[in-house]
């Protein structure tokens, strides 16, 4: 029983470390698209591990926590996709480092028509 609690605490710690990396990524990345990348991935595994650690600490909750993990894995990538798509169609351009932008080539209407109107 005691071992399970220690394992749960360690897993929760690792999970919060990944969330910390996500936060550092949000600060360091140059533009919105790269920030979404850092935020989504690290926070998904981070919250999965944190929840799993809590589940090991309180084994009665483990089933419900599995359900929470499923919801997080489904909803996290969807929300990041919606944010990225909205950013693109709002005309937010990627940073200078971005060398290819096939999406902009194929959906020319949005960014260029705005410039023409000016």
């Amino acid at each position: 029983m005691e071992h399970l609690k220690i394992a749960g605490a360690i897993i929760t710690l690792i999970g919060s470390l990944f969330v910390l990396f996500a936060a550092i990524g949000l600060l360091r990345m140059p533009d919105i698209y790269n920030r979404i990348q850092a935020g989504t991935k690290a926070s998904t595994l981070g919250s999965i591990l944190t929840l799993l650690g809590i589940g090991l600490y309180h084994p009665d909750w483990l089933l419900k926590i599995m359900l929470l993990i499923v919801f997080i894995v489904i909803s996290n990538p969807v929300s990041s996709h919606v944010l990225g798509r909205a950013a693109h169609f709002a005309g937010i351009l990627p940073s200078e480092k971005t060398h290819t932008n096939k999406l902009k080539e194929d959906t020319l209407e949005t960014p260029t028509t705005k410039e023409e109107k000016k």
Binding site: R28, M29, P30, D31, Y33, N34, P94, S95, K97, T98, H99, T100, N101, K102, L103, K104, D106
Partner: peptide, 9 residues
């Protein structure tokens, strides 16, 4: 910060 971003098809 070794990044080399791009949007691909």
């Amino acid at each position: 910060l070794p990044i080399n971003p791009g949007i691909v098809r």
